[in-house]
Amino acid sequence: MNYKNNETICNYKSAQLLDLFQISSKDIELIQSAGKELSEHLDEFIADFYVWLKDTEEFSIFFSDQQLLQQVKNIQKIYWAEFLEAKIDEKYVLSRETVGLTHARIGLSLSAYFVAVDHSLFIWIKRILGSKCESDLDAVCRAFTKLVHLDTMIVVEAFSFMTNKTISKQSQALMEMSTPVTEIWEDILMLPLVGIIDSKRSQDIMNSILSKISQTQARICILDISGVAVVDTAVANHLIKISKATRLMGCECNFSGISPAIAQTIVELGIDVGSIRTNSNLKDALNHAFVSQGVRISKG
């Protein structure tokens, strides 16, 4: 799935993130100076990590391909090298976003990611405590922990960005499937409405009806609303607008499927349906359409 380059994925700039996690320049220095020694042992870190990962369920699902595994190890090495350099700028944020987007795309769960982050942190802290580093080791551990969590937050933001994108794509797809305006007879269009009608959806409905009218020059359009989940003032307002717009194009809009419940709701809401043609069921609406278009149907 693509996303536009100018779309914000993570809602925070690098400076805000440092602020949020209260990572001071002192913390950065601590990470960088410990990082000098630790970065010489990156390969060992990766090896340690994979000893652990090999026994997890995710490993067999995602890393059975040797070539892919090597690629991932290389990426991970770069990731931690960046971490130990601790140069927290927009480029740094971007590289963490990529991790989140990738995980979301391949379907690696956030839970699996959290567990892996926890284990990475465990390995690093063990190594810090065993290092010859001269700084205050508690302070180094705390600085490491903060930066690991900052990374995690960006990954989570990117992950949910991707998830939301997927959801909106899916609902868009559903929406497009659910506004099938069809010409059921010469000059007669029909559209069954089902589910929940929000303002975005009613705009889609309006668009597809109007373009179908201009394509077919239809004179009557039947909207069956028996499957609409809730009729409220907003929905009623949209339906009234749709019927006004179709009329301007020379097409009469006829609402069918007004159930007793819908009728009662409309009355209780005090909505003026004055000039709108309605029918309790589709059969009557069709009958009216045929009569007004001079269509005669006879049996046999």
Binding site: A229, V231, D232, V235, P260, A261, I262, Q264, T265, E268
Partner: peptide, 28 residues
């Protein structure tokens, strides 16, 4: 929310008309 409210009402409110009116209230 409307979908969830409909489910929740399904267990508590039997009358179909009343349920539809209550969902309208929720929506408003």
């Amino acid at each position: 929310g409307i979908i969830e409210a409909r489910e929740w009402l399904g267990e508590s409110v039997v009358d179909h008309h009343v349920k539809s009116l209550l969902l309208t209230v929720f929506a408003e």
